[in-house]
Design a protein around this nucleic acid. Structure first.
Lengths: 168, 168
DNA sequence: TTTTATTTTCAATTTATTTTGAAAGTTCAG
DNA sequence: CTGAACTTTCAAAATAAATTGAAAATAAAA
């Protein structure tokens, strides 16, 4: 496989993965393109490379910036804007999880809290089943939060360990 | 809030969450309905409750069964099939992760392996950036796998601990 | 075997999402 | 100011995804 085929395959694979996880295919593709670009790209270059319209490129880049995955870079004496992606995939993963939690999970947790306050006979089978499901879901969110924290700590410790080895 | 409002809100909230994670809104709603049903439901009941067609109900239920989230129940002397959901949300979460890994992540890992074999000058900036991104992604998948394993073990240990306390 | 209850399939339709592109907006140099 | 270089917006169009419903298939009962 030549570089260009590999590049296209990477972009298309990332796009498919994104779209199966509820991220627009184009957004994932722009992200993929920036991930493998050694240098920042302009909107023009992104449009041309992925064959998308200016409007689409603009909106997609804005979304990626809002998600904290892409940075804008201005060059002295140039009006055009350039964009580069965060290349550390572990940081990217943490950032995506953080954003998805905030945007998609937290509003649900709010609703679940309300639901638990529902009036009515707490010993009714249906009433109880709903409260049980809600409580159970909240518990799993806690477990997931804890697992993430542990994974982050483990990574930080590994980093400290590696640095320590270097300087010992 | 009355039970029926709470029920509807739960179903609609779960549907919205599912659809933002790339699961069809209806599939998530059927799942939600079964999660809070104390007793198994027939296709008829699901259709009526969620106001969906027979075809849609049938396909959605089949998908949920394929995902390992819903079980079919046959009753002696009755032709109709009934469906019930796995109620333990931690099991549900593990099952969803397992399925998504198999269906969506593993094929990507296969492609990434191929991409690393790409021919060409390994010192070329663009070539190197692609290989770096791929390697980096593979590393994060490993971290995620490990974090999940640790979370599962932690949960199992907590269970053993609780049982031990009971019988000590 | 025939009838009846039930499930499954899938082409056609509907609905939701994404994309385009041209006009409006912005910003800065001259 | 004015115009050139660029970015942003958003209604309309295109595309993709979900849904329907009726016909076909299946399977138990008569």
């Amino acid at each position: 496989m030549k570089y260009n085929e590999a590049k296209d395959k990477f972009i298309q694979t990332w796009g498919t993965l994104g779209s199966s996880w509820g991220i627009s295919r184009t957004m994932a593709q722009v992200h993929a393109l920036l991930l493998i670009s050694p240098d920042p790209l302009s909107a023009e270059e992104i449009m041309e490379d992925l064959k998308i319209s200016r409007g689409n490129a603009n909106m997609t880049i804005r979304d990626l910036i809002d998600w904290g995955l892409v940075y804008k870079e201005l060059r002295a004496g140039e009006r055009k804007e350039y964009f580069k992606a965060e290349k550390d995939i572990w940081k990217v993963a943490k950032q995506i999880i953080k954003e998805r939690r905030k945007r998609e999970i937290e509003p649900v947790l709010g609703v679940l809290e309300e639901l638990k306050q529902m009036e009515g006979n707490k010993t009714d089978k249906k009433h109880k089943a709903l409260v049980d499901a809600v409580t159970n879901i909240e518990g799993v969110v806690e477990k997931a939060d804890f697992a993430l924290e542990r994974a982050i700590k483990l990574d930080e410790n590994a980093l400290v360990g590696a640095l320590f080895k270097l300087f010992k």
